[in-house]
Amino acid sequence: MQVLVGGLTVGAVYALVALGMSLIFSISGVINLAQGGFVVLAALLAVALQGHLGLPLAADLALVIAIMVVLLAAVERVVVRPAVHRGNNERVLLVTVGLLQATGGLLLVAWGNLPYTMRPFNGTQSLHVAGASVPTQTLWVLGALVLAVLGLWWLLNRTDIGLTLRATAAKPDAARLMGVDVDRMRLISFSVSGFMAALAGVTIIPLTFAGYDTTTPYAVNGFIAAVLGGLGRLWGAVAGGLILGLLNALFGRFLSGTLAQVVAIGILILVLLVRPTGLFGASESRR
């Protein structure tokens, strides 16, 4: 039970990373490997803003969300868009790897090589559920995932922008004919994934330590989760993240943490070999 709680918590963060990656991929075909790095950036921003400005929690969260939304829009406009216009998606993939490294480097310069954490939102007390102790912060993390999923569903299915986003995801060329500015759709998808990175980073940081060297694990695990769920499939990304988190926790509990990472990569390779469309991507058409 305790393993389940830990696994779901980590899984929710992977799910948020994977959700952002899958959203961007479905809309623009770009695999944004830097998404995991942005989660850590959001986490450290939250720590810094709280530490230096003494902001209350709600303001801290709102400010980090605003910064990440604007920052990722800028990243799309300044880095990704020129790359997309000039090269193919494989080359853009390398650009996002560069972005991930650059994010790690920025963190090292700005925050140094120390790991950071933050006080939990509601203190350190835990709830006791079925024999397991559940930190209240876990509920914030899971709540963030639920909020992201509901928000994204609402945006995609209940708004005009969502209609154009879905159209772009299904058939970019046809959408362009309808006057949809595909560049703008990509920018929006980056902004929304910035929102998700902020939610993930700010809610998970009280439960863990983050620093410049934790960007890659988030990026890798988020990518594995996205592939597990079928890249570009939003609900698959959520399921993939949660499954990966649980597997990680199980292997970490009964074997070792290092081995858990090997197993995760093993799963990635296995999925790509046997079911490249992901566990949930069987019947529908490919992108």
Binding site: D160, L163, T164, R166, A167, A170, K171, L177
Partner: peptide
């Protein structure tokens, strides 16, 4: 025809009128 196959007929037609709407992403969000 180059309709968006996964959208409904009504959604496809709505998409045609999309460029006439003025409100921005933020307003929708």
């Amino acid at each position: 025809a180059r309709l968006i196959p996964t959208l409904t007929v009504r959604e496809n037609v709505m998409l045609g009128g999309h460029h006439l709407t003025r409100s921005r992403f933020l307003a929708h969000g």
